[in-house]
Design a protein around this nucleic acid. Structure first.
Lengths: 185, 185
DNA sequence: GAATTAATCGAACGATCGTTTTATTAACCC
DNA sequence: GGGTTAATAAAACGATCGTTCGATTAATTC
């Protein structure tokens, strides 16, 4: 708390005027993050109807959002264990709501026979896992920009759900297929 | 330290006979875990030559190992930040070695024209992310056993790397395609 | 502009932290 | 079986933790 207060330029006691304790402060931060995430996706996705495009938009959104707000996401993922049972349940529920929006896309795409998916629940988790992993390694000064990474993940995602290659107006028609075979790790 | 000592049934001071401090204790645990992981994979994979089968074996191994040793893996992933720079570098290097073994499989499969991959580095990370995410949600009393989950992930993985469906002697010829469309989340 | 409330400070509280000290018991060696 | 080393215990150390207290300053209200 003293460290946080320092960074804000205030005494640690001042915090307790706004939050009853450390737990509540953390919880507020995490809930605010989740709400922002959900809102941002709903805004981004509004108007995109086709399941395939919606799916592509989701991956694009998820990756860029996670890359832009590394700290929020990191705390959101790592500090779940520091929440008490009640607070954790709230955050987990919000996360579930977010992940559900992906699942619904998969459902719709399946109904529209645009996707070929064996197990929707698993596919949802696979895609969330695949795209969230980004946060562990992505640095903006790497060989690829966020947008490039996102676009490559969209392609991988489409393959994963068994969609035909997307003919894109949204991505500007550049159906990139650059072969960047880099062996160094 | 007192809590750990309690669980071992000993006084906290006794620990300091074996480890100079808490940092070293954590580091030893994490390094031991990584070494076990790498060794286990090398044992499992020895003798499997075909890139496609090797790839399937990797996913199968990764998932079952992670499901069996949830605690080790959880500490390995979550406590990296608690290591000092030097120790962290060692663990990260070991993790890199492990992930490299997947990358080599992808390289080989690409050379043998068994895979279609745009960006090997990204594909490696996508697969690692996708399969490691398991740990966040898998519980052994879920609707699927570890083996079933692993097999489904193998199928998703094969799709991701653009491999033709695997004609399996190793999986016992059961080319399962059960359609478990479950809508509840 | 006096009264009230909000916001902050400096200092302290008790609890807990990683670690050390000192002493005692157990195991091993020639 | 006496001497040495290994292993543990009990107690304490100083540092840091989250939080509270009492006092002071800033802002707002009527």
């Amino acid at each position: 708390m003293r460290q946080l207060a320092d960074e804000v330029g205030v005494q640690s006691a001042a915090f307790y005027h706004y939050y009853p304790n450390k737990q509540q402060l953390l919880f507020s931060l995490m809930r605010a993050h989740m709400v922002r995430l959900i809102d941002a996706w709903e805004e981004t996705s509004s108007g995109v109807e086709d399941p395939v495009e919606r799916f592509a938009a989701f991956i694009r959104f998820h990756i860029t959002y996670h890359a832009d707000r590394r700290d929020d996401v990191h705390i959101g993922n790592m500090e779940l264990r520091s929440l008490n049972a009640d607070n954790r349940a709230v955050i987990v529920a919000l996360r579930g709501r977010y992940e559900n929006s992906l699942r619904e896309i998969l459902d719709d795409g399946l109904d529209a026979r645009k996707f070929v998916i064996d197990d929707i629940a698993l596919m949802t988790r696979a895609i969330i896992g695949m795209t969230t992993g980004i946060n562990l390694w992505f640095r903006s000064d790497d060989r690829l920009t966020v947008t490039e990474v996102a676009e490559k993940y969209v392609q991988m995602g489409l393959r994963l759900v068994g969609a035909k290659k997307i003919e894109t107006a949204t991505t500007g028609g550049r159906n990139v297929s650059v072969r960047t075979k880099v062996r160094s790790f």
